[in-house]
């Protein structure tokens, strides 16, 4: 009985904490994205609502809540309703294993990194559901593109993660952080880090890999027909995905919460947001790839390089 109570409290508190983090993170990231894009284009960005437009996203979110939820007439209603939920739930699950600091983590699972990769792949299923059920050619095209590009970036993503994992010898995220007590993995695995960032950008469907949404070609891709809060949930999931990919990159390559002077949590968030800034910087620098270019990049460059990196790592571990 006491066990159940304790676990119940743990689940409740974790859930509230995670949802709070997800919302605040998304609000902040949307504002940050607008500021970064604006400054790259020599504009000030949002300036009117709050200090330097800090409350702009809250105003936008309130507007979105007030919008009508439209369901297209011939949509597959059940799948149409489920898609945003399927998009968002796996994102929440990934937070279970992310170590924010030595003490602040929900569950230290043995399969940590595997859990994150397994669930983050479900986003593709959600995109396919949304695109298929909308009964709209642009949505369907976006969904098809998303599924087709999955293999091109997921395989190198997993292989690069694997080269870190065989160095550490554990899937546990706390073990991976512990391994980097003196030297960060990025110094041993610079190539893997670069490949991971590239694949991570593709994983979050962001420019230059935003082929499934491709504003200028497909209206909004798979979420063309979504409006109001359902659209907002897709948006929320996208930005939370960015956070998770960056958090995984931080844990795998940048020593997790390790760092001098500042508290561990601050270090962790600093590194995560630095990687997110890098991804935003990519978005406002590179034009969108054509589809065959993405497949070429994935199959001809990322996969061979990541395989070579994996073999080298394995050899090095065997020799030393």
């Amino acid at each position: 009985m006491q066990f159940l109570l304790a676990e119940g409290a743990r689940i409740g508190i974790s859930l509230i904490g995670v949802i709070g983090l997800v919302s605040i993170n998304a609000l902040f990231l949307i504002w940050m994205e607008r500021k970064v894009s604006a400054h790259i284009q020599l504009r000030p960005g949002p300036m009117e609502v709050g200090f330097h437009g800090a409350l702009q996203t809250i105003a936008d979110a309130l507007k979105l809540i007030g919008k009508e939820l439209i369901t297209p007439e011939d949509a597959d209603k059940l799948i149409y309703l489920l898609a945003p939920i399927v998009m968002f739930l796996p994102v929440l699950v990934s937070f279970i294993v992310i170590p924010f600091s030595p003490t602040l983590l929900i569950r230290d699972l043995n399969v940590g990194i595997l859990l994150i990769f397994a669930f983050s792949t479900m986003a593709v299923l959600a995109i396919l559901m949304a695109g298929w059920s909308s009964n709209n050619k642009y949505s369907l095209l976006g969904a098809i593109r998303s599924v087709a590009q999955t293999i091109a970036y997921e395989i190198p993503l997993l292989i690069t993660a694997m080269s870190v994992i065989i160095m550490v010898g554990s899937l546990k995220l706390t073990d991976i952080v512990a391994y980097q007590a003196t030297v960060w993995n990025v110094l041993f695995q610079p190539l893997a880090f670069i490949l991971f960032i590239i694949c991570g950008t593709a994983e979050t469907n962001r420019a230059p890999f935003d082929i499934p949404e491709a504003e200028s070609e497909l209206v909004a891709g798979f979420h063309t027909e979504y409006s109001g809060m359902r659209f907002a949930i897709f948006f929320l999931a996208e930005y939370t995905n960015m956070f998770i990919v960056s958090a995984v990159a931080t844990v795998l390559f940048l020593g997790g919460w390790r760092g001098p002077i500042l508290p561990p949590l601050v270090w962790f968030l600093l590194k995560v947001y630095a990687i997110i800034f890098l991804m935003m910087w990519f978005r406002w620098t590179f034009p969108r790839l054509r589809f065959d270019q993405l497949i070429t990049l994935g199959w001809k460059i990322l996969i061979p390089l990541s395989l070579a990196n994996l073999i080298l790592t394995a050899l090095a571990i065997k020799i030393f």
Binding site: V36, H39, I40, W281
Partner: peptide, 14 residues
């Protein structure tokens, strides 16, 4: 990336 980061730190013209 070098080009965009240089613009990022330039003063705003708007």
């Amino acid at each position: 990336l070098g080009v965009t980061i240089r613009y990022f730190v330039k003063p705003i013209v708007t």
